[in-house]
Computed example of a mutant assay.
Amino acid sequence: MSVQFNHTIVHAKDNRESARFLAHILGLEVGPEWGPFVPVATANGVTLDFATAPAESIVLQHYAFLVSEEEFDAAYDRIRAAGIDHYADPHLKQPGEINHNHGGRGVYFMDPAGHGMEIITRAYGSHERPEAGS
């Protein structure tokens, strides 16, 4: 078997709130709670297990999700409908915009715990680079 990423634990101020938030934006389901975890599974089988942690112990992380053009449209509509601050860049300098990096579209936003979330339609490095001198 080749190495595969299976799951990660995402610390949150409220595990249910953060799991519901991400699942809603991405059009995913919140899985059944088990122990201290509230899981959200992606299509490729990777699970984000949200766990409540004291606010002062949460280390902010970045999570990027590769989506189809249609999924991007739906997620972006939900972001705007909910009035969620969003940005074209990870430094949060281009509010209310999306980017067109790597020949696709992308947007950054924060989850309720302050983690940086990103949705993209093209994987980084997947676009064709122009020939030198073109």
Score class of each variant (00 low, 15 high):
Asn6Tyr: 11
Arg80Pro: 08
Phe37Glu: 05
Gln61Trp: 08
Gly104Met: 00
Asp77Ile: 09
Phe5Gly: 09
Val46Ala: 05
Val3Arg: 12
Glu71Val: 09
Gly104Leu: 02
His102Gly: 06
Ile98Met: 08
Val67Ile: 04
Gln4Thr: 14
Phe50Cys: 00
Ala55Cys: 07
Ala23Gln: 02
Pro39Lys: 01
Tyr76Gln: 11
Glu17Gly: 09
Thr47Gln: 07
Ala19Ile: 00
Asp49Glu: 11
Pro130His: 06
Met110Tyr: 12
Ala43Arg: 15
Asp49Gln: 11
Ile25Gln: 03
Val38Pro: 01
Thr47Asn: 04
Phe65Ala: 05
Lys13Ala: 04
Lys13Ile: 05
Ala82Trp: 12
Thr47Phe: 02
Thr121Cys: 04
Ile119Glu: 03
His11Trp: 10
Asp49Phe: 03
Val10Gln: 02
Tyr87Thr: 08
Gly27Pro: 01
Arg129Asp: 13
Glu33Gly: 11
Tyr108Thr: 00
Glu33Cys: 11
Val10Pro: 01
Val46His: 12
Ala43Met: 13
Ala88Asn: 05
Ala113His: 01
Phe37Asp: 04
Leu26Pro: 10
Pro95Met: 01
Ile58Gly: 02
Ala81Phe: 10
Phe21Cys: 02
Gln94Pro: 07
Glu131Ile: 11
Glu33Asp: 12
Gly31Ala: 00
Ala123Gln: 14
Ala82Gly: 15
Lys13Glu: 02
Arg105Pro: 03
Ser134Asp: 12
Arg129Ile: 09
Arg78Met: 04
Asp14Val: 00
Tyr124Thr: 14
Glu29His: 14
Thr52Glu: 01
Asp77Val: 11
Asp14Arg: 04
Gly106His: 07
Leu22Gln: 05
Leu48Arg: 03
Leu28Cys: 10
His91Val: 15
Ile84Asp: 02
Ile9Asn: 12
Thr121Asp: 03
Val67Gln: 06
Asp73Tyr: 08
Arg78Tyr: 03
His86Pro: 05
Gln4Cys: 12
Ile25Lys: 08
His86Met: 04
Gly35Arg: 07
Gly45Gln: 05
Tyr124Arg: 15
Leu26Gln: 03
Phe50Thr: 00
Pro112Trp: 01
His24Glu: 03
Ala43Val: 10
Pro32Lys: 15
Ser18Phe: 01
Gly96Phe: 06
Glu69Arg: 14
Glu97Gly: 05
Met117Ser: 04
Lys93Tyr: 06
Val30Tyr: 01
Thr52Cys: 00
Tyr76Arg: 12
Pro54Glu: 01
Ser2Gln: 13
Val46Asn: 03
Val3Thr: 14
Gly106Leu: 06
Ile25Gly: 05
Arg80Tyr: 04
Gln4Ala: 15
Asp89Arg: 07
Glu71Ile: 07
Ala53Trp: 09
Ile25Pro: 06
Gly83Ala: 09
Gly104Ile: 00
Ala19Lys: 01
Leu66Ser: 12
Gly103Gln: 05
Val10Cys: 03
His115Arg: 09
Tyr63Cys: 10
His11Arg: 15
Phe5Gln: 08
Phe109Gln: 02
Gln94Leu: 15
Thr121Met: 05
Trp34Val: 13
Phe5Lys: 09
Ile58Asn: 00
Glu33Arg: 14
Glu17Tyr: 04
Thr52Arg: 09
His115Pro: 03
Phe37Lys: 10
Ile9Trp: 09
Tyr108Gln: 07
Ala132Pro: 15
Thr52Ser: 08
Phe21Asp: 00
Asp14Glu: 03
Ala43Ile: 08
Ala53Lys: 13
Ile79Leu: 10
His86Cys: 06
